[in-house]
Design a binder for these strands. Sequence first.
DNA 1: GACGCGTGGAA
DNA 2: TTTCCAAGCGT
Length: 292
Amino acid sequence: MPGLAAPLIAWYRDAARDLPWRREGFGAWGTLVSEFMLQQTPVNRVVPHLEAWLTRWPTPADLAASPPGDAVTQWANLGYPRRALWLHRAAVEIRDRHDGVVPRDVDALLALTGIGDYTARAVAVFAYGDRHPVVDTNTRRVLARAIGGRAQPGPPHRRDLEAMEAELPADIAEAAIVNAAAMELGAIVCTARAPKCEACPLAAQCAWRVAGYPASEDRRRKQATYEGSDRQTRGAVLKTLREAAPAAVPVFAVIPEWPDAAQRDRAIDSLIADGLVEADDDHLRLPGHPSS
DNA sequence: GACGCGTGGAA
DNA sequence: TTTCCAAGCGT
């Protein structure tokens, strides 16, 4: 097995997209915010929101000083609004536990709200230049195909980190590039549907291609139907409150047209339980308590 | 390990 | 049109 590092590094030098968080000196806070936004939201939708966010809140302390509801409003339609709440909590934790500086240590990053195996290592590697395996869904797919010979990866697993670690050069700077290049390859060449193998630097050594693109059992979770779901209902409720913010909205005026009143009430209750919505008297609003 | 969690663009 | 997919995380 020749290894993936050398061809990935050469390819990345020419093919990498020019993205804001790859600019020199983008900063650890910017990297952290970008990674939160990129958790399940496509790059093209993140870019404009990221710039607006960092203009409003240039440091973790700036965000921590605002009400969490403002973060939910600024999050707008990026989806999964819990991430806005988690990012706000992380900012408070950074202010209180790390003197306002995004931590560099992976375990310290993992201890922050909303940061898991991927985001912690992404910040340590891309913002601070340390040497760790960074494994997202793109990298898992590249590894599954190039090394495992399978069409798609299985569910995320700690073993993925070990597989990526085995591909990293000893040189710290090169290791960071290999991490970024594997993700980039999965994002723009080794895509889930219709991979562009003719443009792939790993084509000659790709186990999946060499084996003739065998179909493998797809163990990925199917996404639940969105139309008519509780998630859709929650989204509609929160959209109403974002558009009214910072004003509160009478409960009777929150998606009154919704066909299933019980589902609407269930959505409101779950949003309150998640801390995304506050209820007082007969009104609902985004959470407004200062963070401390 | 499996589930719940938004939103919009592309095939 | 419907389905699939997108730099995951907490429970």
